[in-house]
Design a binder for these strands. Sequence first.
DNA 1: CTGAAAGCGCTTACAG
DNA 2: CTGAAAGCGCTTACAG
Lengths: 334, 334
Amino acid sequence: MTIKDIARLSGYSLGTVSRVLNNHPDVSEAARKHIMQVVKEQGFEPNANARHLKMRQPRAIAVLVKGSQNMLFSDILERVQAKVSQSGEELFVDYLDEDSNEVEQAVRIYRQRRPKGFMFLGGDLEFFRRYFSELSVPSVLLTNNAAELGFGNLSSFATDDERAAEEAIDYLYENGHRQLGIIGGNLSVDQISFRRLKGIYRSVQKNGMEFDRMLQYEPCRYSMEEGYEAAKRLIDKNSGLTAIFALGDVIALGAMRAITDMGLSVPYDISVMGFDGIASTQYSIPRLTTIRQDTEQLADKGVRTLLESISYELPPVHEYVGFELIKRESVKAL
Amino acid sequence: MTIKDIARLSGYSLGTVSRVLNNHPDVSEAARKHIMQVVKEQGFEPNANARHLKMRQPRAIAVLVKGSQNMLFSDILERVQAKVSQSGEELFVDYLDEDSNEVEQAVRIYRQRRPKGFMFLGGDLEFFRRYFSELSVPSVLLTNNAAELGFGNLSSFATDDERAAEEAIDYLYENGHRQLGIIGGNLSVDQISFRRLKGIYRSVQKNGMEFDRMLQYEPCRYSMEEGYEAAKRLIDKNSGLTAIFALGDVIALGAMRAITDMGLSVPYDISVMGFDGIASTQYSIPRLTTIRQDTEQLADKGVRTLLESISYELPPVHEYVGFELIKRESVKAL
DNA sequence: CTGAAAGCGCTTACAG
DNA sequence: CTGAAAGCGCTTACAG
């Protein structure tokens, strides 16, 4: 079933059928009606490959997601999908490992499929610095700020990780905690955890606290499993801790389990705080105190900006969206 | 940059370049080497639209996932992706709402993109019965058994939900529980929960227990939030329960939170058991006793069967993969 | 082993 | 308002 069959069946020419299918104005009402009816009857849908080949400006927007198990990203993706499909665009979703090169992958996808825009859920600025110049279509990076890169076709929306982490530590400080442990991330590689660490230092200094990186920090990846192990290592080498700030909720969830397994209680022996605000933190026992990233804003601004910069020539924008410190049960006042 | 440019740059014809790109055997070593070098230099990738348009037998496999927040499906998807990309195939992933019609969506995708196979993560047999005949490419349904439908191009791999649920209840019975509550699913619509319910009834009868559907069952969707509410409703109307079996882990996690909020303890006042075996059940407090579905087997058999039936004409296969009852902390012996 | 040519299913100036 | 025709970037018989 091709457009040719529809032409034959309707008695009109190829061109007219195509015009009807593409909602061109210069076609008679009679033709439109008749052709649409045949299209319905046959359940015909134009072949996307042929269409894109011809149109040179394809409909699809590609989304690259770093980590398929990342609940924060699934949350954002779900919203992005709703908004994009509402605007009639097509979405092409691709998942990558947490530490693979999303920009190289985007370049590959660009050459193969010519999407008209890219949305990155998570991204490493180093990869962007090195490879992004090969990408000429409008793009948006979510959850990481790319202002310093200065690319003309790359916008970004993120949480102000530094300020958010600073507030987290301030909150712990206000609640009487002086011996803090930090788990998660990897300062040398990952800018996001680096920024959060920076905010942590700022609060530590501002409040006149001590911070011994050897004794109070354990890096780990963003998973419950690694959060569990990191918390154990940290507590093993530093038994004086009264609170642990995890750089991600899943890390925090793993840490709470580890603390419990060590015969300690959250929050009576050790308080725990997370970062992200994923749904399950509301149902954990105890409920997790965390910094909620505004996934709705992130998705909304991201999609709007991407769509706009596909339609018009616009300068890139780099914005922080609000975050919220959610006080729940996992932090105790000393 | 098209294949034409590569032809010009390398001094060979279009056809030869194409042959090199597609690894055809009948091309000289010299030509292959030279052309590949030019391709490398230019970072050229053939346009997928043109290729698929011409080849009529496209590379892509489409995966339809019901529910983007479903951790069981993300787990399976991650494995499916690894296996498929390892075999050099392309993957097209599309997410749907939990209750939207995946088969209609597949028909739409088929007409637009002509994938050479479909993989369904989750699926409603009613939708398959009504619409699947419009799909003529090899397909595999995961986590639900489609044997009764008898389609020649649809295989399926699933957990034997009935037996698994029966074992779950047996286990609760062996541990002294007689007053059971069940939450989750919706017998009238959803076959999977219907099968689990069937297994539950079987165990109940076999063990000579009582079961009053009004007082011992609360349907709900697969989310922590609904699990939370369902558990509350159930306990409110029936205070004698000693154990709750949730038809999904996320439901169970929500239920544990609800029980705790009611001032009760898991497992000392009420035992809780889940279904699925998602990773976070290992880190919840208490750790959740559950039925683990074998996502590795599901993904492996699913991908292998799909790939094979794309290459050869094979009769469909419908198999159950093993499951495992994981005994953890949320169930107490009475 | 290689080139010239047809054709995949569409869209869109160009005439009329 | 409509049709005939060119062409998007590829692949693959068909000759040689």
